[in-house]
């Protein structure tokens, strides 16, 4: 099982979609930095996240709060803090950073 991290906005780059394309069932995706914009409610990327089963989605709370989105994150996302980030890293066999 792999933890994928994505740090690019889906409105700026294809990185999030490329990651999804190569993300296997049972893996997880953690949105960080500008990657968290993919979790904004009622956007194409969030709709996509909500329609996918078999992949767990997370987003980093500090990055969400800094960008003023804490009320507007899709319910399909689990919000984690830095300690949660570390837990995710240890729970997965390897990490793949998409940037």
């Amino acid at each position: 099982m792999i933890l994928h991290t994505v740090n690019k906005s889906p409105f700026e780059s294809n990185t999030f979609l490329e990651c999804l394309e190569l993300c296997d069932h049972g893996s997880s995706i953690l949105l960080i930095e500008d990657g968290i914009y993919a979790a904004k409610k009622n956007t194409p990327s969030a709709n996509k996240i909500e329609s996918i089963s078999g992949i767990k989605f997370y987003a980093l709370s500090a990055d969400i709060e800094a960008r003023g989105l804490d009320e507007n994150i899709s319910s399909a996302i689990t919000v984690v803090d830095d300690a949660g980030f570390v837990d995710l890293v240890t729970q997965h066999q390897s990490v793949s950073s998409w940037f």
Binding site: I2, E21, C23, D24, S94, V95, S96, S97, W98, F99
Partner: peptide, 17 residues
């Protein structure tokens, strides 16, 4: 294809992307 890439990722000890 992407299926093979997923398999390679699952089998790798370390992934650099």
């Amino acid at each position: 294809n992407s299926k093979t890439i997923k398999k390679m990722m699952a089998d790798a000890d370390t992934i650099f992307c």
